[in-house]
Design a protein around this nucleic acid. Sequence first.
DNA 1: ACCTGAACACCGTTCAAGT
DNA 2: ACCTGAACACCGTTCAAGT
Lengths: 247, 247
Amino acid sequence: MSPKVIDHCALEAREEEIMKTALDIITELGVAGLTIDKVVAKVPYSKGTVYNHFTCKEDLLTGLCNRSVRNVAALFCRAVNFEGSSRERIFAIGYAYMLHSLLNPTEFMLVISAKTPSIREKSTEKRQEEHLALESKLLGSILQIISAGLSSGELNLQPHLSPAQVAFSLWSMCFGTIALLHETLDRCSVRTEMNLERELINHSNLLLDGLNWQPYTQDHDWANTIYKYKTELFQNEVEQLKLLQNG
Amino acid sequence: MSPKVIDHCALEAREEEIMKTALDIITELGVAGLTIDKVVAKVPYSKGTVYNHFTCKEDLLTGLCNRSVRNVAALFCRAVNFEGSSRERIFAIGYAYMLHSLLNPTEFMLVISAKTPSIREKSTEKRQEEHLALESKLLGSILQIISAGLSSGELNLQPHLSPAQVAFSLWSMCFGTIALLHETLDRCSVRTEMNLERELINHSNLLLDGLNWQPYTQDHDWANTIYKYKTELFQNEVEQLKLLQNG
DNA sequence: ACCTGAACACCGTTCAAGT
DNA sequence: ACCTGAACACCGTTCAAGT
């Protein structure tokens, strides 16, 4: 082993340690409560070393955002490979997104924060490009399922809609629903009567029926599909969530 | 006129002046670039006076957020009173939301920012309550149209959906679409091929068809309805937008 | 009663000195 | 070549002094 390889691993581990520490601070004190001083105090490196990894505070935030999107991408890959109809798989994408947002509320909020221009503009070019690549990966998973649905005939596109537009309608519906019902972000009068899982299922069904993606809501036992998500596809995540909500 | 009335008006005018100045700074430098010092430098009052109006920087941000939601509420009221079918009026709500986000990109971004716990928690109780009241008002407009649709028989609710759930599905769809396609917030590879107005119309049609809200997309000349929005209901806003996009 | 701005504590970022 | 932390400029917030 050359020293370079060792150094490289050590650098990566250190970067991960800095990011994990920053995430803990944000969970406790909010994005505005994050301070490089506080990170340095909890980590065995100096300020200068932190600034060797991240050019500024915003670059660190974008790094955290990308770390989170990488995890979502992994969940989406599992959804793509779920054994079932194309509609069951596209439905699993939204379910995965929801599970991730519930398991990692701070990260979900951070991804939204990191999109504001004031944060993005100050980040490294490298990390910004990484962010775009990761988002393309997410979209790739969705497009893969849409493509399968078109091949199998389960999805019949209306002539004025492209696959990218369909992918985008699903994405924005999931994003909007999760963002507005996310407890970390907001808790207003109306929303307290709403249940995220139930509403996401409703909205998905409305949209997928509207897109003519078969089998329709009334032609399939969707409760059973969700049972499979919970006990097979996302078993670990659902168990973690139970622990989190009980503890 | 008693001196109290004069003082009260002066106070309100001053508060508006502070908020407008803060908004200009955010438009130029982003939320992170907003500084009480910069506000004070542009305004004929001292730091202490600014802190008499807003207990802290976050309270000022929430104030700006409420100011923006008040304007949205006014547009929603106009949508409710549009002369047309209930579906034309509910469609106008989403259109109004979109126009507002395009005309006031900084404010749209700010409303999202102001929902993060770190900002909300530091704001005055009073301003937080005002925010909830304003959001209820928005929702009230949507519920009013849903109620009219139910009465006229144009909307037939599926048994498992309540009016509040329908209102929420429309809200989250509009929010998600506008947020993801908002240039101020994000500009990624996929999104550049997307056009906000076109996609919002698509998503609205898919959702409203899915909800069985008549007349269906194919049974009405929606292009004509949108023409009416542009030339009657929201004539001023559309003209302002043209000026903004050409200038 | 309200306004003012100096003063203080804290934070992001840099860079000369050290290894 | 990489690490360190003192130093600097800037910012949020307070409050004694002034009107």
